[in-house]
Amino acid sequence: MNESGKAAEGRTTHERPVVASPSSSITLCTSDKSLPDECSAGEHVPGEVGIWVFVLGDMLVFGLFFTVFAYYRGLNIDLYLQSQTSLNQNYGALNTLLLLLSSWFVVMAVSDVRNSVNSNVLKKSSPANKDGLAQQNTSHPSKRAAMLLALAFLCGLGFGLVKIIEYTEKISAGITITSNEFFMYYYIFTGLHFLHVLIGMGVLVFLCLKVRAGISGESDLVLVESGATFWHMVDLLWIVLFPLLYLMK
């Protein structure tokens, strides 16, 4: 709040226009933020449009990664099969379950935040209820959402721990990025994915604190949805990486 105020102050000295410009939004964006469960298909972009530029871009790159892996695997299949036997499938599966669980927590958190934002809007629009009452009613769900986000973060932490145990085992067994082609992909793909997990965990902490401090309106909902979209993408990429690296025979 304070920041935006300052920014607006700086703006006026630089003679910036304050009218909304249509050029700043692209056609994909629909400003309608009604309940997706209630509105029909084709109305609601979860989060802001920008996060989808990033998420789809990232998915494009990982799609390229997967394809490149499948191609080189086909050229030297014995090496890949032999190397794969030294991976521990249980770690991979456990991590898949952890990320799925954390995704579910995030879905529930988004649902909570959405409910409280909507009820807030309803309360404000009806003249009978004044701020005090609305605040009291919305404080509960946002606390629960914060707890859900914290649980999601803990699942991410669990993922990280399993990953670190796994890397440690491999490295102490003398298997590194230069061991062979399979392990090159193993380290680079899981490493880049792990980087995404770390960024996602940072996002979850940020959202958790934000939600705990109180949800003021639609802009907060958009923020939570954007973060959730990113976290689900992290889950989604692991869903493909798990069979690709650990299971395929």
């Binding site: 920041e3 935006s4 304050v18 009218v19 909304a20 050029s23 802001e48 920008g50 530029v53 871009g57």
Partner: peptide, 16 residues
């Protein structure tokens, strides 16, 4: 960080 009503660059460009 651009909080203006008419941002200089669209936000998706930040993500890009």
């Amino acid at each position: 960080g651009d909080n203006a009503e008419a941002p200089i660059f669209p936000r998706w460009l930040g993500y890009f």
